[in-house]
């Protein structure tokens, strides 16, 4: 059978990030905002950490276990938003979620390599895998916005 569909899901970029994850490993630095997310049904388990300085994500780390879609997207996400202003990161998260759901999204918004996850929209069963890292980022940003000067206790 034609594997066209499958190849739109598993792009070379994705498998590269899966096998060579970027920004992997956590820091024991309490100035980071840390978020840990688990998906108990499939066993995906991911932690992300961001440092916010002058309204920008200056550092980001991620670590976890899971399938290639969830783990690679954590790596891609970390590269995409590193150095980004918080308000721009929020726009990218929103745009990304619309894209993987198969909804209308802004194709002109620069999302870096995250654009390769467009194929997920044809695999609704894998939507959760593709969004776990972005949900974690969203929660970390929320933590920062709720408490911008707070030293993280996790």
């Amino acid at each position: 059978m034609a594997y066209g569909n499958l190849e739109t899901l598993y792009r070379q970029v994705i498998m590269d990030h899966y096998k060579n994850p970027r920004n992997k490993g956590l820091k024991g630095d309490e100035s980071f905002y840390t978020v840990h997310i688990k998906n108990p049904t499939c066993g995906d388990d991911l932690t992300i950490q961001i440092k916010v300085e002058d309204g920008r994500i200056t550092e980001i780390y991620q670590d976890g276990v899971g399938c290639s879609i969830s783990m690679s997207s954590a790596s891609v996400m970390s590269e995409t938003v590193k150095g980004m202003k918080i308000e721009d990161a929020i726009k990218v998260i929103d745009n990304y979620v619309h894209m993987v759901k198969g909804e209308a999204f802004d194709e002109n918004l620069d999302m870096g390599d995250a654009i390769v996850y467009q194929g997920v929209s044809q695999f609704p069963q894998r939507f959760k895998c593709a969004t776990i890292a972005w949900n974690a980022l969203s929660k970390a940003i929320e933590k920062h916005l709720n408490c911008p000067y707070h030293k993280d206790e996790e």
Partner: peptide
């Protein structure tokens, strides 16, 4: 191969 990645191929079949 993570089982969920494999499962997507099985589903395609």
């Amino acid at each position: 191969v993570h089982p969920h990645d494999a499962a997507t191929v099985f589903d395609q079949e």
